[in-house]
């Protein structure tokens, strides 16, 4: 098919030019950040690690593991804890959220207690959990679980209790019983809220695991940061921070893909 020559007015040229600049701006801001980094680290008085220093530290870890684990090993150790905690948090959290969102009696009984628990930050549980369970794997996963549970329950409950009246009316017209209303209408309608809870719990879990590791442990990215701090190895700290950011970003993308697969209707729009 013959491609017709595009004709653009002067105005449209300017528009196109402006759009191209906008796409370039994020690259610009990253470069700016790198420059600031170089500036901060080039000052001889500060001990701020330089990009070069961080890169060297990365190479060093590849050769010489810390506590028998390479960088990827520590990242995986942290991720494993998060995944186990999320698995439980999602299963229990979504179920509980549906219960108190759908059933008024359950909400009356459990709702207020849950709200009170929610106010307690996950890390405040550390002393009690450590006292009960020590400083092994289980207590860490437990604290991450607590941190990840809250957003899931809250969002699921909100999603279920806010089902549009019109959809429930459709159920009434077609004589759906309570169970059908819940599974055919309420839950699918609440999926976008449930996924908001899943997104929040994932980022919350990632943050909490790092904090839990910083309080005592032998593996994980949080542990690496403490290690670096204790031995004045700030390159290690900064390297770990960069890894944490990258992994957090990747987790968010994975969840986004998950949502697209489970809820295909969210991406489809009419022309």
């Amino acid at each position: 098919m013959k491609k017709e020559k595009l004709f653009l007015s002067e105005y449209e040229h300017k528009e196109l030019f402006r759009k191209r600049i906008y796409r370039f701006l994020p690259v610009l801001s990253i470069l700016l950040l790198l420059c600031l980094w170089l500036l901060a680290s080039s000052n001889p008085m500060s001990r701020f690690p330089s990009p070069a220093g961080v890169w060297e530290r990365y190479l060093k870890i590849l050769e010489k593991p810390i506590k028998d684990l390479g960088l990827l090993g520590h990242i995986w150790a942290s991720l494993k804890r998060v995944f186990i905690a999320l698995a439980f948090a999602w299963t229990l959290g979504i179920s509980f959220g549906i219960l108190i969102g759908w059933n008024k009696k359950a909400n009356a009984i459990f709702g207020p207690i849950f709200t009170a628990f929610r106010a307690v930050p996950p890390l405040a549980w550390v002393p009690l959990v450590t006292m009960w369970f020590g400083i092994g794997e289980f207590p860490k996963v437990l604290i991450v679980f607590v941190g990840a549970l809250m957003p899931v329950v809250v969002n699921t409950q909100a999603g279920i209790s806010n089902v549009q009246r019109e959809y429930l009316d459709i159920g009434t017209i077609f004589h759906a019983n309570g169970r059908q209303m819940l599974f055919e209408i309420a839950i699918p309608s609440a999926l976008d809220a449930i996924f908001a809870g899943i997104r929040n719990s994932t980022s919350a879990g990632w943050m909490v695991v790092l904090a839990a590791e910083m309080l005592g442990g032998k593996s994980g990215v949080g542990f690496l940061i403490v290690r670096g701090m204790d031995s004045g190895d700030y390159e290690l700290c900064l390297l770990s921070m960069i890894c944490i950011g990258v992994v957090g970003y990747l987790l968010a993308i994975v969840i986004q893909l998950l949502e697209r697969i489970i809820c295909p209707w969210t991406t489809k729009k009419s022309n």
């Binding site: 019109e166 009316d169 459709i170 017209i173 699918p188 309608s189 999926l191 209707w265």
Partner: peptide, 14 residues
């Protein structure tokens, strides 16, 4: 008795 609604008539997840 069946009914056709004006708004939000269809379930978007189906």
């Amino acid at each position: 008795i069946g009914m056709v609604f004006q708004k939000r008539a269809l379930m978007p997840w189906k």
